[in-house]
Structures are given as structure tokens and as C-alpha cells.
Amino acid sequence: MSAEAETQSAEAETQVEKREVQAEEHPVAPFIRMDRMPHIWCPTCGIGTVVKCYASALENLKLDLDKVAIVSGIGCTGRVAGYMNMDAFHTTHGRAVPFATGLKLGRPELNVTVFSGDGDLSGIGGNHFIHSARRHMDILVILVNNFIYAMTGGQNAPTTPLGANSSTMPFGNFEPPFNLPHLAASCGASYVARWTCLHIRRMTKAFEEGLERKGFRFIEIIAPCSTLYARRNRLGTGLNLLLFFVVFVEIQHGVDTREVGIAFQEKIICGKFVDDEEQTTFLENMNAHYERVLGDKYVSMPPEGGWIHE
């Protein structure tokens, strides 16, 4: 076969393949902006898995997608909002939670998810995170924890385990990291869970619960970052990281969140730690309080928002 013929044959094959791909839509395609594929995440990155589980949760719940909004900050996970086919906002670094707060209070009927990374939510956005939990703000926060600032090139994060290597702790991290489920629970989160990218079904179920509960719901997903975290720490490939989860994850539902801190290459406790369905939310508290003290004079914002129109 001549070189030209070879090329033509290869092109023909590609075209056939393309047609097949178009014909057979991925089950979660309706939830994804397929016109933006392929995504920017590295091979073996865990974020895609988390997105798939979130989309499955939306599908399983048959939620009205028109009323679900998603907000991201900056970073690898910060790109999630950009790939979800719903009202989606890719905001500034660390400010996804307060942006989401405005969305929720501006139109209370919205079901708002914040989807961002450990550095974004617990580093630069840490103050917003704790205050949002404190005031029981009605948002679901999905935090993908890969133990490192990945998009900027592997710098130390508030979640980097003691002793782990990062580009700004080249001799190993000596700062104790956050125990995020404990942080969220102690500040007032109504729902707190942690899973890894290995736990597809449990993660999906947690997202379903998170989307249906009210108040400040926090789900931490431990995700592999082979490009930076694993490489810097000589932990192998994405597959090695998942195998690590197989061996080192312990599921302990309802465990005291003080016990779930993460040490370098030691066990990771997963499970549903808090699920308080009785807790009242910011909006419920505000409405009930004003109804009590102001009576008939109180006018609450309508579910579809405070916009003024003809």
C-alpha cells in the first residue's frame, strides 16, 4: 500500500469511528457540554470520575436541571462548572461559596452546588467556607481533594499531608493539614461525607443525598493526581493511587470527625459522618425569625427571586 493510500485508509477509519461515537451517546452526555469535550484534565485525574458521579446523581434524582446551578472557583476542579450543562459560573479564586450564596439568596428556589478544589475552598476560600457552614447556608459543597495545588504546578495546599512533597515544600511539608470533614462538621454542616474516586456508587449516592438535603452539605472526594502529587511523591501512576485506596480506605459511617484526619500514605477513613435532617437552614431561620418578630409586616423574597419586572 502506498503512503497516500495508507493515509486515506486511516482517514476513512477515523470517520467511521467518529460516526459511531456520535451515534452512541454517553449516558451522562445530556448533563455535559459535549461541545467542550475533550476536557483539560490529565489522564488518570480523578475529577472526571467525580463529574460523572455528579451527573449520575442528577439523572437518578430526575431533578429539574433548569433549577440547578453550579458554581466553581479556580483550579483543576474549578473547571467543572464549565463542563456542566446547566446554569454554571466559573468565578474567582476562593469565592465560589459567597458567589453561590448570592445566587441562592437572589433566587431561593435554585438548588446550588459549589464544585471546587481543596486549595480553592479551604485555602484562599477557607473563611467563606467556615462562615457558610456556620450560617447553614443552603448549598451543597463538593470538594475534590487531591492534596496539592495542581493547576499551578504542585504547590503546597492546606490539605497536603505532613511529610508529603510539594513544589513549595521541596523538602517535605511540615505544616499540619486541615481535617476537612471535621472543619465542616464543627462549623455546622448538616451533611458531611468523604469518599474517594474509587467509590463510584457510594459517591453517587452521597451526591444524591447532598442534592436532596438542605443547609450546608459538605462532601469531600479524595482524588488521584498522578501528574503532580503522585509524581512528586513517587507514588506511581493513577492505577497505583486507586490501588492505594483499595488497600488503605476504611469505611466508618458516623465516626467522630476528629478521627478522620489524613496522614501521608496512611489509612483514609471514608463514610457518611454527619447527616442531620432536622437542622434548619439559613433561609428557614431567617424567614421563621422575621415572621415571629415582624408578623404580617414581613415580606419574604419570592422563590423565583427579588427581580422587579413588568
Binding site: V71, D87, F89, T91, T92, G94, R95, V97, P98, F99, A100, T101, G102, L103, K104, L105, G106, R107, L110, N127, H128, H131, M301, G305, G306, W307, I308, H309
Partner: peptide, 21 residues
Amino acid sequence: MEDELASMAAVVGASWTGTKS
């Protein structure tokens, strides 16, 4: 809000619901 960073972010978020902020 907890600070002015959050205040401004919330205002931008709320405005996207059409509510004047």
C-alpha cells in the same frame, strides 16, 4: 458577609438571578 471579598462575590452571584444587587 464575613468580609468584603465575600460581599462583592455574593452581589455578583445575586445579580445573575435578575435581583438588583
